[in-house]
């Protein structure tokens, strides 16, 4: 499977439960996000160039350079953020880690899962991506894994459901 950054034990799927295998997100997600960035930068650059250019004088059209400059910085940020997302299925819980500046790690014991949701919007589908979201009885639980391969998302969903049933605990 083509994943972004697989660290941990090199044996892959056959690793024992004690050595969790970290899985990253699909590179497709990064492509989607960068595509969106480029599209919005284009729109903003046109707006930032046209409006001051028309109303304040042609020299002000140089404002159009501002959005691309910011976008170039965001281009790198997106990659760092994408690289920071990873998850691992441990023996009894799912561990999701994400964020560069604002780091967040979430642990959800399988027994507490109320619902596993797989969603895929039109743009995500076009790039072959799906999002898995876990819900527990606590609304604050923010356990979402975006940018998964649809097959992997389904595998994860089935596995989580199966483990959740085996260890079901509820409220």
């Amino acid at each position: 499977m083509e994943t972004g950054s697989v660290t941990g034990s090199p044996e892959g799927a056959g690793a024992p439960a004690e050595q969790p295998v970290w899985r990253g997100l699909e590179p497709g997600l990064l492509r989607v996000r960068r595509l969106l960035l480029v599209v919005w930068t284009g729109v903003l650059a046109v707006a930032a160039g046209l409006l001051p250019g028309l109303f304040a004088g042609p020299a002000w059209a140089a404002c159009a350079l501002l959005p691309p400059a910011v976008a170039a910085w965001c281009w790198r940020l997106l990659e760092r953020n994408w690289r920071s997302w990873r998850y691992t299925e441990r023996a009894d819980d799912l561990l999701i880690s994400r964020g560069v500046l604002w780091r967040e790690e979430t642990v959800v014991p399988y027994g507490r899962m109320q619902l596993v949701e797989v969603t895929s919007g039109p743009l995500e589908r076009r790039f072959g991506l799906a999002t898995v979201q876990l819900h527990t009885a606590a609304a604050a639980t923010d356990a979402t894994v975006p940018g998964l391969d649809p097959a992997e998302a389904e595998r994860l969903r089935d596995r989580l459901t199966e483990l959740g049933e085996a260890r079901s605990a509820g409220l």
Partner: peptide, 15 residues
């Protein structure tokens, strides 16, 4: 027994 999930957060200043 009532814990549904556990999270760790860390902002840049905290780090």
């Amino acid at each position: 027994a009532k814990v549904q999930s556990v999270r760790l957060t860390q902002g840049p200043w905290e780090r």
